[in-house]
């Protein structure tokens, strides 16, 4: 196990490389996943909320009707 970790004396470099790659890729992946999730939730919520906020609105012209 120690042999594996020391990687013939180059362990620091190798593990730094692999660690960094994993951290960056994981970080980018999580950020990308979460933004799309929260944004589409927010968009869905907004869409659901909009007709209720403006009861007089007719379909299709809703954006031009004052609340």
């Amino acid at each position: 196990m120690n042999d594996f970790l020391s990687m013939g004396g180059y362990g620091a470099y190798i593990w730094a490389c692999y660690g960094l790659v994993l951290i960056v890729l994981l970080g980018l992946g999580i950020v990308s996943w979460r933004t799309q999730k929260t944004r589409s939730h927010r968009a869905d919520a907004l869409k659901a909320a909009q007709p209720r906020r403006r009861p007089g609105a007719t379909l299709g012209t809703s954006s031009k009707v004052q609340p």
């Binding site: 890729l25 992946g29 907004l46």
Partner: peptide, 30 residues
């Protein structure tokens, strides 16, 4: 990995565009 994150990011972008359009439609008069 690229394809997965790429699709997520595209979805995020599209959601941002949709969100903007909805906000604009909802808030523009005010």
């Amino acid at each position: 990995y690229f394809f997965t994150v790429f699709l997520w990011r595209i979805k995020g972008e599209l959601a941002a565009i949709r969100l903007n359009a909805l906000r604009y439609a909802g808030e523009a008069p005010r």
